[in-house]
Design a protein around this nucleic acid. Structure first.
Lengths: 249, 249
DNA sequence: AATATAAAAAATGAATGCAAAATGAGGCTG
DNA sequence: CAGCCTCATTTTGCATTCATTTTTTATATT
């Protein structure tokens, strides 16, 4: 297999993709970091593959110095690995790694829910209710894509309502790591859990309305835990399938 | 005021201080990262002060390239700030930043407690009980220093018992940011909250024995929340005092 | 033919060089 | 004497260069 990196020399512009993790768009290093992070998160380089410095330099139209700085940061964020004298590789997450990640996400959302109950306004709750019913519509129409998007927005709204930028940043970081897997594994939610997830969302909204922090915290943790189970199962199947295909070919 | 950075040219050796955040001790960049992180966390550079590249290079006996790579990582970790064309400064945490940090720590410990209840062994519980009674001894003898050390070990034991390396790493990162403030503000626990904290620790141990995950989660969050209140108050006083002293002199 | 070995090529890690920007000293003006 | 401008110095950001290490390719050996 050859490289997956385009040859184009589109130099760095004002992309400012703002994923909430970082914001030094001014410097070449900062731009590179933002673009490269998105590039990796979107699954443009396969798991375990090398991150070819020279090629990326050409692609981004920069020298190796700022690129390498960005790579060090991405390594610290857990998206890539740095092997001594062997450069950077896209970090391959084991099943265990994924379980851990999901649990940390569960912990962060659980925290977000608790904090949100302290700070959320009535207007924000109304907005989440609106999203909730819209999502319910997608559920009724069996529109998984639409459902999934709204679902994500609801969770983000809760994190926002927590009024804690530190939490939001950490959340974005871990979400990015999981998103990378989702992209590359072509993840989809399992249908069988759909009804259950919908019920859990009812409970989330209910606890939020009552601003029952510790209860919401519990529900959110369990909700994410169930997501985790489904995701891990799905991923295991996907990997088995890939392995089988590889064995055939 | 002059620089706070020693002139000595002690080159980088096999320090390997292993704080659990990072582990590329092999490369010059990795070593630099470890040493510089400790250096900053231990409060060797005052808040808001510039991080002079050249001086640090001399101190560490390296060139600017690996140093700057380390600086980018520390900035991503939230220990320093990078101002465009003005280099790095030690990040100054506002009271709000600290509140946020404490809440995130509370969330992580709360999560750790929940996970620990799923995975902890009887032997680990016995060990935590041992620490608990040792800490109680320090409490009875009014030995704050000893109390504080054991207290920290108990919390670390719970994080360890959670069996989640991703969580442990994130925990270490946030703990470092708070520790930096603690070092530089010469933080001490308030006596008045001592008895209350001790009671909370009783409840923690009790919930852990019963492996009551969601209950322990609640107790730990509240415990850290109370810590937060005490810490913020203390810091506000300390800052007021500093400001007053500065105004006098 | 398969494996082992050696030379060539490429990549990495770090130091150095250079242009642009910021800082600071000194002098000028009001 | 405060405030502002000018210019030298320092610092920063990035590109480039250099020494090693790794990877690939070519050759030799069994």
């Amino acid at each position: 297999m050859k490289s997956t990196i385009p040859e184009a020399g589109a130099p760095i512009a004002q992309s400012a993709s703002g994923n909430g993790i970082d914001r030094q768009e001014a410097s070449l290093h900062g731009e590179t970091l933002l673009r490269l992070r998105d590039y990796v998160v979107e699954g443009n380089i396969p798991e375990g593959a090398r991150v070819p410095e020279r090629q990326l330099c050409q692609m981004l139209g920069i020298s190796r110095t700022p690129l390498r700085e960005a790579l060090k940061v991405l390594a610290a964020e857990g998206l890539i690995e740095l092997l001594p004298n062997r450069g950077a590789r896209i970090r391959q997450l084991s099943q265990r790694d994924l379980e851990e990640l999901f649990d940390v996400m569960a912990g962060l959302e659980s925290l977000a829910g608790r904090l949100a109950c302290e700070a959320i306004t009535d207007e924000e709750i109304v907005e989440i209710e609106r999203l909730h019913y819209k999502m319910y519509g997608h559920y009724l129409h069996r529109d998984m894509q639409g459902y999934f998007q709204i679902n994500q927005r609801i969770h983000e709204s809760i994190v926002t309502a927590a009024r804690n930028e530190t939490l939001r940043t950490a959340y974005a970081n871990f979400a990015g790591r999981i998103r990378r897997v989702r992209y590359s594994a072509n993840f989809a939610r399992k249908r069988q859990r759909w009804a259950e997830a919908m019920r859990e969302h009812e409970a989330i909204l209910d606890a939020l309305r009552r601003r029952a922090g510790s209860e919401l915290s519990d529900i959110l943790f369990q909700h994410l835990r169930n997501k985790r189970t489904a995701a891990i199962e799905h991923l295991a199947e996907a990997r088995d399938a890939t392995a089988a295909t590889a064995a055939e070919g």
